[in-house]
Design a protein around this nucleic acid. Sequence first.
DNA 1: GAATTGATGTGAAACAAATCACAAAACACA
DNA 2: TGTGTTTTGTGATTTGTTTCACATCAATTC
Lengths: 212, 212
Amino acid sequence: MKQITKHIIKNSLKRIFLYRACLVRLKMMGVEKAFSYTLANETGVTSDQVRKDFSEFSIKGNKRGGYDINDLLEKMENIFHRNKYHNIVLIGMGNMGLALSKYSKFVQRNMNIVATFDIDPFKQKLRSDIPVYSMGRLKEIIDRFSVKVAILAVPEISAQEVADELIRHGIKGIVNFAPALLKVPPDVIINNVNLCDELESVIYYVHKLMKV
Amino acid sequence: MKQITKHIIKNSLKRIFLYRACLVRLKMMGVEKAFSYTLANETGVTSDQVRKDFSEFSIKGNKRGGYDINDLLEKMENIFHRNKYHNIVLIGMGNMGLALSKYSKFVQRNMNIVATFDIDPFKQKLRSDIPVYSMGRLKEIIDRFSVKVAILAVPEISAQEVADELIRHGIKGIVNFAPALLKVPPDVIINNVNLCDELESVIYYVHKLMKV
DNA sequence: GAATTGATGTGAAACAAATCACAAAACACA
DNA sequence: TGTGTTTTGTGATTTGTTTCACATCAATTC
């Protein structure tokens, strides 16, 4: 039933996001067409890989003509549901939560943090442009804004408890910043972001590279 | 020479970090021995995988006796250089940089942000317990504290420029929070953390799961 | 102290991901 | 219209990762 589901995000999906960012840049520069090797050069992969990745997501270009950037971006917006707004809740207004609540890139990509939550009543007024509610109002807000995805930035100790509550109220995906492995039903997507591990990984590879 | 090097952190390394976190928890609970399936259950993988991962990093246990937790943690500390202190610099004291500078888990793991930097002179006093310097003092600090790893939390537009400067002063590893692909020499480790992509990935998988 | 049990460690097998190689399509131009 | 060129899209191959299967060892029991 409840289990540790490490829904590892596929590398091909991450690469697709890179391609898109690159296409957006090219478009801003007035470019209209891109080839697989254009994207490959810009993102540090091979052109084969670009095409294979597109193939995986059924994205098609024009033989010889490459890819029409506008067309491609539109297809991607559909595939990644970017044409709709996505309402997000953020739980935990500590340092990290506060920073995330102010992170403007989310809004630029149609992902709106509609409300934040914290158990500390002091933080409930003070900290942000986005309303900060007590946990008691979680269900009400999730229902009102049809929220399906949450950002979890609470301390490790309460992460599981809060995740359970979120899932009980209908949340189906969580980006988890707490260094805890959440036990969740198999139909809930978890994406763990562990900042210590990210930093420590770099330290490890730096040492390794310096030794050789 | 300079190129986009996406040093993707290996999944096996990430799992090793999970095992270690799990071992630390077990130790705190007074447990002294662990088996491959203990770690497997706690981290949501198979016991085969635990053993294979250990094998990759030449970590050995005792046949039949499983793993002595103290012994195992000590071995890991050596492998991951946790017995030493690691001095880190953080560039960019915006929302995210500020939050990272206050993130106490880094210190708990012997990773010390010795100084932070920002171009904005206003931020140079105000924001943190850790000193905030102007970019001009970067080289001095890097040299004084033998810093090899940096956290980059500057806006996308200046990410490449700052990265170049860091590398010029001897930085060998960067955790990059800017949504930009950095072009660096092949002996520099880059770990990109893209918060938008992390969130968007979850949205994608949630939609996919709800459709099926 | 031999037999049994329970765990590790690692080659072999199965699976997944990336690269290669080339047929098919579209355009250019004679 | 036909020939040459360029680029896509995708089977085939290679490479990498995970799972399987079992030999090996250490502890326990008879």
